[in-house]
Write a protein that binds this DNA or RNA. Sequence first.
DNA 1: CAGTGGTCTAGACCACGGG
DNA 2: CCGTGGTCTAGACCACTGG
Lengths: 242, 242
Amino acid sequence: MAAEPTYLELADGLAASLGNAGERVVSENELAERHGVSRPTARAALQELERRFLVRRIRGAGTFVSRRIDYVISHDTAPSASATLRLAGAEPDVELMSARTMGAAADVALHLDIERATPVVHLQRRIRIDGIVTSWTSAYLLACAVPGIASQMRCHTSLFQVLREQYGIESQRRWSRASLELPTDTVIQTLELEGRPPTWLVEGVNHDRADRRRAIEFTRSWMRADVVNVVFEMGHPPEVVR
Amino acid sequence: MAAEPTYLELADGLAASLGNAGERVVSENELAERHGVSRPTARAALQELERRFLVRRIRGAGTFVSRRIDYVISHDTAPSASATLRLAGAEPDVELMSARTMGAAADVALHLDIERATPVVHLQRRIRIDGIVTSWTSAYLLACAVPGIASQMRCHTSLFQVLREQYGIESQRRWSRASLELPTDTVIQTLELEGRPPTWLVEGVNHDRADRRRAIEFTRSWMRADVVNVVFEMGHPPEVVR
DNA sequence: CAGTGGTCTAGACCACGGG
DNA sequence: CCGTGGTCTAGACCACTGG
């Protein structure tokens, strides 16, 4: 016999009977009572489900089925966070945190292949999904290529769309990198994280489809791993069966 | 005041004073005694470090500082697990689990762009790092391109190397995909996982550099997220400062 | 064998959310 | 206000590792 621990038995049982996203899951007390175990054991089962990204727990409210969103990064998908999230069926809520022009720092200059201190526009945005802060993005754009973009961003949400419609720039991925990292204190504050859970770090450089030699934009995003599953795809996928 | 929970204070304190990989960390009892807290609280602190992939805990032995290996997937890195791991400073220990010829199933046929039931060689391998089963890979190779490879693999460890040295095939990534998924029961058994922790799923199709039209190999790997950090890179990285 | 981490109990108080 | 999950205590037994 496997003789699995009680809390894992409970977790597996619950996992198999989870409802649709957003639905409520039994409380710790109810689970404990129903199965004749102590509250810590029932609690361990629910925490196990949270570690598996299957539920979200909110103090004072309860435990709820969560949906984890596939955030697909590939050559074929547009370099637009809101579009990528919408593609996965989510309703992203974009908040512009700051927009200002500054001289490029060393890392930004390196990625954009420009001299240090070249003017760049720094946009900071946060995206909420179902009220949860899901991503925090710093975008650095070549200032000379996007004059007045700061004011544009104040009345639009999608940077990708503004670039296309206001500046005629068809943004396209030149380079991109994703990994699961330990968040810094700033990230923890901005994403309103508890503890210090491994978090996606996604960086990328984009250029205009019409002028591939010049990099236009460098972005650095942190994304909650419990809300989003980053799926990274490289090269051309096999033909899907039709 | 932040009024952080005791166990997080303890975790942060320990995290800041961790030694080199492999070194021992204080035991639960010692931590509890030293800080005048209960064992469950001390335990929670150590478990928090485990969730951050900073330590590994072994029943009966203790808690040890772990190093997490960057597994870099990019166009520039060779499609070889052992080479990728060695590049990161690890010493992979490859075990050939099975090698047999079979007819291609639907998914394999799709990825290799061949008819179903076309003969393919199925290689199953496991890689251990520091004694821990880190990855489990199923590789499907076009049988006609690699005659007798099963016996070759019994005396060599690197498939990439065998393809190059025995068959003159310079394996190169055509398509690749990585994400963090919930492991199936089979994966849990094979990787000797406890619980059902999110695990890397990496799939890829490779071809010969000399004949890019024909796919040679389809691989599907599961890798422990606590041992390996998959870093996925697409396109050409910016020039490194020299 | 002693010490480790893994599991479990039966309580307690708290901060928070919603009715 | 009550119920929720978050934290914490003080015990207990077990399986396992190592000397």
